[in-house]
Each structure stands twice: as structure tokens, then as C-alpha cells.
């Protein structure tokens, strides 16, 4: 008989591990990734490859040479960051810009704070916002794709960008929408123009439902963001439909679904309690709409999430779980 093991209870463990949870997130992102490949072709595959590979490489190099700790590649968190970063960039982004984004995401936003679990802000979003501020040209002009392996076509802007510009020019929302032929059905299935991940809302929602079913994430945060965005938009649009865009339009554009389903629900940078999550979601939804309506950037999701990320430690402190037998 070999030596018996002795340990405190419990003696069994659930099948969950950090790796299995991250793998579930990767699986949930697959529909969106495949859609982006189908709509944007080989250049999107290139962006995705550069992003994932450089995230993995950087994480490995930093743990190996700077932190001198065992490698954390196996937990797959770098893969998730890589995919999310790629989905947050337009498919036309040059490879070196993607690489810089990865450096900021993994090197600055994640590993500087001590790696997985320690970072305050969502790494992929920090990478994206850094690129948005530093390389606005690459990040805000989009070429209309022509499907898999197709050539580039007309250069355009995102629906939100178009409306923002149009409004500054004095036109009304209705006119602009009619002029550009925006239609909600198209946005739901093939929202051309924008970050790669925004292309197909249905694919993203499919992933979200998968994560909820697997109990990887709880739906509260995402649902409150949607609700807040819809409500805020409804009020403003109700007051002045010429000046403000409506709720459906706001829900379907500008990476809101991507952000609400996959970035705001990141474990590390979101509150743990249900009510904390609701406050967090309301904050993101409201800030997003304020930035969209009144800010100079056409989009607000990334900024809103990062701002609310900063409040997470405070929210965690204020909202605790209800304890058994206590008031």
C-alpha cells in the first residue's frame, strides 16, 4: 500500500478550474469570431492571429523573464484577452498596431498589476482604448468588406460615427438614417462597418446565452446594461427624436453587445455581488449613453466600462452578500 493522503475536508472538488472557465469563454466567443472571419475575410484572420499570438507570447515572456514565476499560459486567460482585443479592432488594422494593442493589454493593463486576478481594468479594453486614442485614423475609418477574400471597397464610418458627424452638421437623426439606409434587421445579423466583433449581434448573444447556461457568468450585469441603455435612450429620444437616436439603434450599434456580454462580465474587473453588479451595469449603461449623446467620441462603451471598472473595489466594499440569519 502506498502512502495515504491526508488533508482537511472537503476531499472532492468540482470540475471547474480557471482553465475550464476561460475555455468556456473562448467557446462562447467562437460564433462571433467565425462571423467576423466570414464577413471580413483573411485580413480579420490575420488580425486575430497576431492578437492572440502576441498576447500569449507577451504573457509567457513577462512571467518567464520579469516575474520569474511559473507560466500562466495554461489558464487560457491570455487567449481570451487576445480574442477580445481582435474583436474590438477593425479588420483593417495593420499588424503592428494590433501588436502594440497587445503590449498595452497584457504588458500594461494585466501584468503590471501582478497578472490574472490583480488587474483593475479589463486588459483588452485598455488595449483598445489606447489604440483608439493613439491611432484614431486606423481605429475610426472602416472599409466596407466584400466577404471572404474579397477586395476592399468603399471607406466609411460606423453608424454611430455617421450620426455623430451628421448631427454636428445640423441634420436630424431620421434624415441621416434614411440617407444611409440603416436597417435594424441588418444590424442584428450583419452590422457592416465597425469593430470586427460587432458584425453579428446574434452570434454575440448566442455566446452570452451559452455562458449563462454553463453558469460561467451571471446575467445581471449584462441585462442591467441593456435595460439602462434602452431606458436612457427612450427618455432622450422621446423628448427629441431629431437630436437623439432611439433605444433599438443604441442597443445594436457600437459594440454595446460585445462590451456588455463579454467585457463588462469579466470576473476580475466586475463586482461580485448581485446588487453590486446591478449598480455596475447601470453605471456602464448610463455613462455609455452620456458619452454617445454628449461626448466628442461617437462611442462610449469602452470608456464607460473602464470608468466603472475603477469603481469596482468601492462597489465590492459597499455591497455584500446577505448573510445567513443576519439583518
Amino acid at each position: 500500500m502506498s502512502k495515504m493522503i491526508v488533508s482537511p475536508s472537503p476531499h472532492i472538488h468540482s470540475k471547474d478550474s480557471t482553465r475550464s472557465l476561460m475555455l468556456d469563454v473562448v467557446i462562447a466567443l467562437m460564433p462571433a469570431v467565425l462571423c467576423s472571419f466570414v464577413f471580413y475575410g483573411w485580413r480579420e484572420i490575420l488580425v486575430m492571429a497576431v492578437s492572440v499570438v502576441s498576447c500569449l507570447l507577451l504573457e509567457w515572456a513577462i512571467t518567464r523573464f520579469l516575474l520569474k514565476k511559473p507560466s500562466t499560459l495554461c489558464d487560457l486567460s491570455a487567449v481570451v484577452t487576445g480574442i477580445l482585443l481582435a474583436l474590438n479592432l477593425p479588420y483593417t488594422t495593420p499588424w503592428w498596431v494590433v501588436f502594440i494593442g497587445a503590449v498595452v493589454a497584457i504588458g500594461v493593463a494585466k501584468m503590471t498589476f501582478g497578472g490574472l486576478g490583480q488587474n483593475i481594468w479589463n486588459p483588452a479594453l485598455v488595449g483598445r482604448v489606447f489604440l483608439l486614442v493613439s491611432f484614431p485614423t486606423y481605429m475610426t475609418t472602416w472599409s466596407m468588406p466584400q466577404g471572404l477574400f474579397g477586395a476592399d471597397a468603399i471607406t466609411g464610418a460606423t453608424p454611430l460615427g455617421v450620426i455623430n458627424e451628421g448631427l454636428m452638421g445640423g441634420a436630424s437623426v431620421k434624415d441621416i438614417m434614411a440617407q444611409h439606409g440603416y436597417d435594424y434587421g441588418q444590424m442584428l445579423f450583419a452590422n457592416l462597418g465597425g469593430s470586427a466583433g460587432e458584425v453579428c449581434a446574434i452570434a454575440l448573444l448566442l455566446g452570452f446565452v451559452y455562458l449563462c447556461c454553463r453558469r460561467v457568468i451571471k446575467p445581471w450585469i449584462t441585462l442591467t446594461i441593456f435595460a439602462t441603455v434602452a431606458l436612457t435612450a427612450l427618455i432622450f429620444w422621446g423628448v427629441n427624436p431629431d437630436r437623439f437616436t432611439g433605444p433599438v439603434f443604441n442597443l445594436l450599434t457600437g459594440g454595446l453587445i460585445l462590451g456588455a456580454c463579454f467585457m463588462a462580465t469579466d470576473y476580475v474587473t466586475s463586482p461580485m455581488s448581485v446588487w453590486g453588479g446591478v449598480i455596475f451595469g447601470v453605471g456602464i449603461g448610463f455613462l455609455t449613453m452620456m458619452i454617445r449623446y454628449f461626448g466628442s467620441y461617437p462611442e462610449g462603451v469602452s470608456f464607460a466600462i473602464l470608468i466603472m471598472n475603477s469603481f469596482v473595489p468601492l462597489i465590492n466594499r459597499a455591497f455584500h452578500q446577505k448573510k445567513f440569519g443576519r439583518k
Partner: peptide, 16 residues
């Protein structure tokens, strides 16, 4: 029954 090596807390809140 063998316990897996401890890794960093990812603040998932599953314990809570």
C-alpha cells in the same frame, strides 16, 4: 481526491 495546485484568485465570486 488529489488537490490541484493553487493558482491566482480570479475574483469570480463562485465561493461567495
Amino acid at each position: 481526491t488529489r488537490r490541484a495546485p493553487e493558482t491566482a484568485c480570479i475574483r469570480c465570486g463562485k465561493c461567495a
